[in-house]
Computed example of a mutant assay.
Amino acid sequence: MELWEYRTLKYATGGFLGGKIDEQEFQDELNEYGSQGWELVSCFDTSQSQGASRDIIVVFKRKK
Rank of each mutant, 00 (worst) to 15 (best):
S47C: 01
S47L: 08
E29M: 12
T46H: 04
I21R: 13
S35V: 07
E23W: 01
C43Q: 12
N31A: 12
D55S: 10
E32K: 15
F16L: 12
G34F: 03
K20F: 11
Q50M: 12
D28P: 07
A52L: 06
K61V: 07
Y33T: 08
G18S: 05
T46M: 04
G18N: 02
E25F: 05
I57E: 03
K61L: 04
E23A: 11
N31L: 13
S42Y: 06
T8V: 15
L17E: 06
Q48W: 14
S53L: 02
C43W: 00
R7I: 08
S42C: 10
S53Q: 05
S35Q: 13
W4P: 12
T46D: 01
D28R: 13
I56H: 02
A52P: 04
G14W: 03
T46C: 04
E29A: 10
K20I: 11
K63L: 14
S49C: 06
L40A: 00
S53C: 06
Y33A: 05
G15P: 14
L30C: 02
E23T: 10
T8Y: 05
I56F: 03
G15W: 13
L3S: 08
S53G: 07
R62W: 07
A52Y: 05
E25G: 07
A52S: 13
Q48G: 11
K10S: 11
L30R: 05
D28A: 14
I57D: 02
I57Q: 08
G18Y: 00
S35L: 13
S47N: 04
K63T: 14
V41R: 01
G15R: 13
Q27W: 02
T46E: 08
E32A: 15
A52C: 11
S53E: 06
D55E: 15
A52V: 01
F44T: 07
V41T: 10
L30Q: 06
D22E: 06
F26Y: 15
W4L: 15
F60V: 11
L3I: 13
G15I: 13
L40C: 02
M1E: 02
D55F: 15
K63V: 14
T13Y: 11
I57P: 09
K20C: 03
E2S: 09
S42H: 12
F16A: 08
E32Y: 13
T46W: 09
V58Y: 00
D45M: 01
G37I: 05
E32G: 11
V41P: 06
D28H: 12
S49V: 10
K10N: 08
L3H: 11
I56A: 01
L9I: 14
Y11R: 08
K10A: 10
S53M: 06
I56W: 02
K63P: 15
G37C: 03
K20S: 12
D45C: 03
W38I: 09
